[in-house]
Simulated scan of single mutants.
Amino acid sequence: MMDHAHDLACVREATDRLLTAVAALDNAALAEPSRLPGWSRGHVLTHLARNADALVNVLEGRPMYASAEARDTDIERGAPRPAEVQVADVRESAARFQDAGAAPADWTRTVELRNGVTDSASRVPLRRWAEVELHHVDLGTGYELEDLPAEFLERETGFLAERFSGHPDVPAVRLTDGTRAWTTGREAGAPGITVTGRPADLLGWLAGRRDGASLTVDGGELPKLPPL
């Protein structure tokens, strides 16, 4: 069972780490490319701020974004803003998300995200935690997948394995870091391929942040995963 209060606390801690890191960046640094193709660091920070507001919308029963076009426009418009404005936006939007999470609510209810995707409200804090942690890595400022909290690595690996479970384009795969194991793919009950690696490398591959070259593959080739 999801513990939304615990996850909200984890989001707060991850956001504090992010804000400490980006406080040292100046305007020139924010204009530099991030690790995400076509996005500067300013794009990443603007996305994080607008994602926080979007998840407030989700928790409060409104559409996550007005439209895909409006989402993209907001990111492009916000990306070149000065560093101090960007940092303040991330901080203030994060506070709005925490406030929405603290409001009395039925956390077992079903909520709607983008593209018609639905989920339990209790998993929204975990989704936000993933946004903050992975995009912190995407900034390319020295925070790496290996620096992610062990709990996050395990839970996000499980979350992404579940996301690809039953996907027609992903063969049956067993994932393991040597102590824990997950199954995924179109026939997750009887995987024919075993992928072994360190927690950071497994998550990096599942999340599209690493190519999987450091992973060991038995029973076939490393599958090509569809975009998240």
Rank of each mutant, 00 (worst) to 15 (best):
A188M: 02
L175S: 10
D3S: 03
A95E: 15
V132L: 13
M2V: 14
V11G: 01
S120I: 02
F159S: 08
R41S: 06
T108E: 15
Q86R: 04
A102V: 01
L222N: 02
P191M: 10
T73H: 15
R17M: 11
E156T: 02
T183M: 08
T20W: 07
R163H: 14
P63F: 07
G197E: 02
L148M: 09
E187N: 14
T183V: 14
L160A: 00
E69I: 07
T15M: 13
G212A: 05
G166W: 05
A190W: 11
A105I: 05
R35L: 12
K224D: 13
A161D: 03
V56W: 11
Q98Y: 10
Y65F: 15
L45N: 05
H136T: 09
V132K: 01
A21K: 03
T108P: 01
L48Y: 04
V90C: 04
A100I: 01
R62T: 07
G185N: 00
D74V: 08
W39Y: 09
A105N: 05
W129E: 10
Y65M: 11
E133R: 08
A9L: 13
A190P: 02
H136W: 09
V90F: 04
H4L: 02
D138I: 00
P171N: 13
T15L: 15
M1S: 11
G220T: 02
G178W: 13
A66G: 06
L59E: 07
W107C: 05
R91L: 07
G142T: 04
V90Y: 04
P82H: 09
V11C: 10
E154I: 10
G185R: 00
R127G: 11
G38K: 04
L148R: 01
G212T: 02
H47E: 06
A68R: 14
A21D: 15
R128T: 00
F97G: 05
A79Y: 00
G166E: 08
S120P: 03
W129L: 15
G192Y: 10
V56Y: 12
S93K: 04
F97W: 12
L215N: 07
L202M: 09
G42W: 08
W205I: 00
P33E: 10
A23H: 13
A200I: 01
A70N: 05
Q86Y: 08
G101D: 02
H6M: 03
L48S: 02
